[in-house]
Design a binder for these strands. Sequence first.
DNA 1: AATCCCGCCAACCGCATGGCA
DNA 2: GTGCCATGCGGTTGGCGGGAT
Length: 284
Amino acid sequence: MDDKRRGYGGVRKGSWTDEEDLLLKQCIQKYGEGKWRQVPPRAGLNRCSKSCRLRWLNYLRPNIKRGQFAADEIDLIFKMHKLLGNRWALIAGRLPGRTANDVKNYWNTHLNKKLSCERTVIVDDEEIKDMSNDNIIHSQMEIKVIKPQPLNFSKNYNKWFRGIDHDHDDTPMKASTIQQSDTEMLISTDQKTTLSSETKLDERLVWLESILLAEREVEEDQEDDHEKEEKKADQMMISSCPLSDGSSPHDEIITTSSSVNVQIDDAETKIDWDLLVDENFYFW
DNA sequence: AATCCCGCCAACCGCATGGCA
DNA sequence: GTGCCATGCGGTTGGCGGGAT
């Protein structure tokens, strides 16, 4: 074997052969995913555990979708990247069959270029003549990304979306005016993080609102070609997250099986549950 | 036909994080 | 509280293939 393809300790590196793929597949079928340290000896592979994990996750795992990204996938990547930045794993989680590596590669090779082109166009259009180029680029790129943290909902989590203030049961509540105490009660944290400051809550609300506004933009776009976009929106729905108690829709915040209508600053907007909620996890 | 160039993507590397003793 | 280990994530690299010259 080529010495270049060996790492320290004689571990093989580089492209995987069909034989190696087969060994890895058989091993994971037999023992299941996880315990990656044990995979190479079990499979009889001269690879490091990380390499095995990566190969499985990015290539061998069932239901991996290969080939061109669809228009709706690209659209979703754009929107998610706008909100989350380079959180490829999170973005990929919204695209069934796509891996973080796929999304990252696609962004770096296709979308990044497209974005920079669009930025140039924007700068031209706006005719900002008194600014230096550096300032223009800086102003365009200054996007505050609120990094989400995984939080676990308590059993009452859907109450938050239904707009029921726990202190004043059945009192409608606007999503943008949730009190800190509500969040403390309704959102329990697995990571033992406490929502102690107003600032933290504000940031989270800003993040939520940005998602909601993005969704609203989508809806405005959809008006142009409603039927077509409706189809797209359906495709974008990965899964639905119905209310656990199956309660009836609230006056102000209307829920359906796959989306929730919330009111922010007197404007109603619809948001897909699955954009926010992933198996009871909520990303702030 | 040979060589060069460039884009794409699989894979690697280093760091961060979480769990556990 | 600390250190170790396993795992996950994002940035980067390098090889391959196809188009251009």
